[in-house]
Simulated assay, not measured.
Amino acid sequence: MSNAASKAADRSGAEGLGSALTILFALSCGALAANLYYAQPLVSLMGADLGLPVSAESSIVTLAQVGYALGLVLLVPLGDIVENRRLILVTMGANLVCLAGLALAPGLGAMFAAMLLVGTSSSAAQMLVPLAANLAPEAERGAVVGNVMSGLLGGILLARPVSSFLADYVGWRGVFGLSAGLIAALGVVSLFLLPQRQPDGERGYLGLIRSLGRLFVTEPVLRRRGLYHAAIFAAFSLFWTAAPIVLLADPFDFSPSGVALFALAGVLGVFAAPVAGRLADRGYARIGTVAAISMVIGAFLLATFGTSLVALVVAAVAIDLGAQANLVFGQREIYRLAPNIRNRLNAVYMTTFFLGGAAGSALASPVLQNFGWLGVCVIGMALPGAALVYFALAEGTGD
């Protein structure tokens, strides 16, 4: 896209999204992203139902996140060359079909395949975020992205308590069936309200995909921000995959509804997104990043007092606040790079840190089984600790 075309695209959104469209974007992003996390407190129920060994239960969540990463790489970049409204609606339709398949899965193979595809098609959420950024005026872009991301993050954070609570009444299959209904309803509304946006990109699909690796190599801000949040999101996923397993066992012996109440503590993290967006607009992204990463480290230090439910609740809140704030700081920085490739920038950023999240989820069960909750906390501190060291080195040298 030429500079003139880029400016025209920015001018087209100079009036912002408006309240109705902002709410639709936020709700749709939240509902789609929640699909990756409904399974987190349900892995024990799903594993028992389908005959999955306890040591492999966290692979259910990992597979959804790997699928999401695939969607970020293979589908989200299409937003730079394909009309955005059509792309989003088609991907949401595919998500509906995959959720129905997951709810009806007869065995492990079908469940794993459906979970992978649910994750892949849930990447429609990351087609909506750059569209919102393109519709927003430059001076308000951080605030607009923060508002939309508050919906996405709300979906992530509410997914755990909602699925835990509903599982007591409709089982794990019913949770995904209800999610399919929600996506269907939002798809119908989007059919009428979602604006069209035809990008000017002329690159073919294979060239588009090949450009992702080059962006990671040639854009230091994108690379740094992706790796910072990969470490943070790995710690986030490690905590939220391991914590329900701990709470369901002795000495807590929580029911799924009890785990749901615990997970509600993390919902406070949703308030970090709009605040972080506004701070980033005012030039506080660097200091905000240090504060967010440090908050996650401190939270895991507090969580070492694993026999204290109060300590775990406070740690959960702090981990979610730090992770969500750092995510928005990163997005605000990468969206400043080039308006005509925002879908690809978003795809590389999200893919990088979701692979970190998948690694964190995969580690949860084996680390918990072999090293206990203390092992989880040590790794949870080490990951953001490494990010903080990298930040100090990279931001100091500018690379």
Rank of each mutant, 00 (worst) to 15 (best):
A184F: 11
F329Y: 15
V267I: 08
I297R: 01
N340V: 08
F236G: 05
L368K: 00
S237F: 11
R332G: 09
D250L: 10
V290N: 03
Y228R: 05
A8P: 04
A234R: 05
R86H: 11
Q198L: 14
F236Y: 15
D168T: 14
A235C: 09
A132Q: 05
I81Y: 01
L182Q: 00
A303N: 09
I156E: 06
V367H: 02
A392N: 08
A185L: 14
A315T: 10
G79I: 00
F329P: 04
L206Q: 11
F371C: 08
T351F: 15
G266M: 03
V290D: 03
L388H: 02
C377K: 04
F300L: 03
M381V: 15
N35P: 04
G107N: 14
A185W: 00
G330R: 04
S163R: 07
I232C: 12
V367K: 03
I81F: 00
L383R: 00
P161V: 06
N95G: 13
A14W: 09
F192Q: 11
S294G: 14
G67N: 05
G298H: 05
G398Y: 08
L158V: 10
V367F: 03
I23T: 15
A48K: 14
A143F: 10
S58M: 07
G71S: 07
A125H: 02
G154M: 09
F216G: 07
G107E: 12
S361N: 08
G360P: 08
L374W: 09
V170G: 05
A114T: 11
G154Q: 01
P41E: 06
R336Q: 14
A362T: 11
M46G: 09
A185H: 04
L238S: 07
F236W: 02
L116Y: 01
A133S: 12
A20G: 10
L248R: 12
S12Y: 11
S121R: 00
P384N: 06
G13Y: 00
G187D: 02
D10M: 13
N340P: 08
L268N: 00
L383T: 01
V189A: 13
A5Q: 15
L208N: 09
T91I: 08
G47D: 04
Q196T: 13
V290H: 06
L238K: 05
L215A: 12
P130N: 04
T352R: 04
D253S: 15
A273N: 11
S122P: 03
A338C: 12
S121Q: 04
N3K: 13
Y390N: 12
G109T: 13
L36T: 08
S365M: 13
F305R: 14
L87A: 01
I245R: 09
R160E: 02
V73G: 06
S163F: 09
A48C: 09
S211G: 13
Y284R: 14
L383C: 06
A230D: 06
N147Y: 09
I341Y: 02
L227V: 15
R286W: 10
Y349C: 03
D399L: 14
L227N: 07
A265Q: 10
P339I: 06
L17N: 01
A291C: 10
